[in-house]
Design a protein around this nucleic acid. Structure first.
Length: 257
DNA sequence: AAGTTTCACAACCGCCTAGGC
DNA sequence: GGCCTAGGCGGTTGTGAAACT
């Protein structure tokens, strides 16, 4: 692919936008829309590349953008969504009306990452009861790229057959309020897990716990899940755990979300 | 008060993907 | 099917402001 010449070589301007440039862009888009970003700057009389115009509009000038500091609620939402989705800023922004991916990315790197480090030295989730109602305090776990280990609970791993997995997940050695250590795993875990579950002993209708985009938890079956990236599954962007005690369609309570 | 460092955030860069031809 | 382009995304950088020495 032939890369387009950079802005400077084309004699186009870079760097911070002036109020005059902003006004030209706003007026043009209000009048004609932004069907073709590449052609827009020329037609509007701006010495900018289309990409720069698109970024300025989507990140700063759009009328539906919420300016100002993030509220506590918004910060909490970002933290929770980041646990589920990782650095998928646009997916996170889609769930925060009026906020842009760039803004969320910045607030994450400048505030929230530090805040999390200070507040959460240990990565643990708490199992409150199991298996009648699966409850967990998910506030502290870092991302959904994790493996639940020991104390009688583990997600399915590529090496485990269905029966082996069932035997691992028992409630007998789980006490109320017992904790489960969480460790991060590499991205191949989920893709391997999916291929393993599809290839072998995992029944197609094996129940899974699925987090949906609205942060509601529900059960589904593995047959309805599709990989969307190396570490997630679903039609959209979901994390999941297996729980053989649940049937597809069951609902669960997961405080903290 | 002046110089230096740190912080916050806007903007850019380069890669990827979808879609048209 | 291959090429090309536009748009979208996440990572990174640049720069002005604030805090610190």
């Amino acid at each position: 692919m032939v890369r387009a010449p950079c802005c400077e070589k084309m004699g186009l301007k870079k760097g911070p936008w002036t109020p005059e440039e902003d006004q030209i862009l706003i007026s043009y888009i209000q009048k004609y829309g932004h069907g073709n970003w590449r052609a827009l700057p020329k037609q509007a009389g701006l010495l900018r590349c289309g990409k720069s115009c698109r970024l300025r509009w989507t990140n700063y000038l759009r009328p539906d953008i919420k300016r100002g500091n993030f509220s506590k609620e918004e910060e909490d939402t970002i933290i929770k969504l980041h646990e589920m989705l990782g650095n998928r800023w646009s997916a996170i922004a889609a769930r925060l009306p009026g906020r842009t991916d760039n803004e969320i990315k910045n607030v994450w790197h400048t505030h929230l990452k530090k805040k999390l480090k200070q507040n959460q030295p240990n990565s643990k989730i708490k199992i409150q009861s199991f298996p009648e109602t699966f409850k967990c305090d998910a506030v502290n776990h870092p991302t959904h790229l994790m493996k639940l280990e020991n104390q009688g609970f583990a997600p399915v791993s590529p090496q485990q057959s269905c029966s082996e997995f069932s035997s691992v997940v028992t409630s007998e050695n789980l006490n109320m309020d017992s904790s489960v250590t969480v460790s991060e795993i590499d991205e191949s875990f989920w893709s391997e897990t999916l291929s393993s579950s599809k290839n072998s002993s995992m029944p197609a209708d094996y129940p899974a716990i699925v987090t949906d985009p609205e942060l509601q938890f529900q059960c589904s079956s593995i047959s309805t899940l599709e990989p969307i990236c190396s570490y997630g599954f679903s039609n959209e962007d979901l994390g999941f755990w297996y729980n053989p005690f649940l049937d597809a369609g069951d609902s669960l309570e997961l405080p903290g979300y």
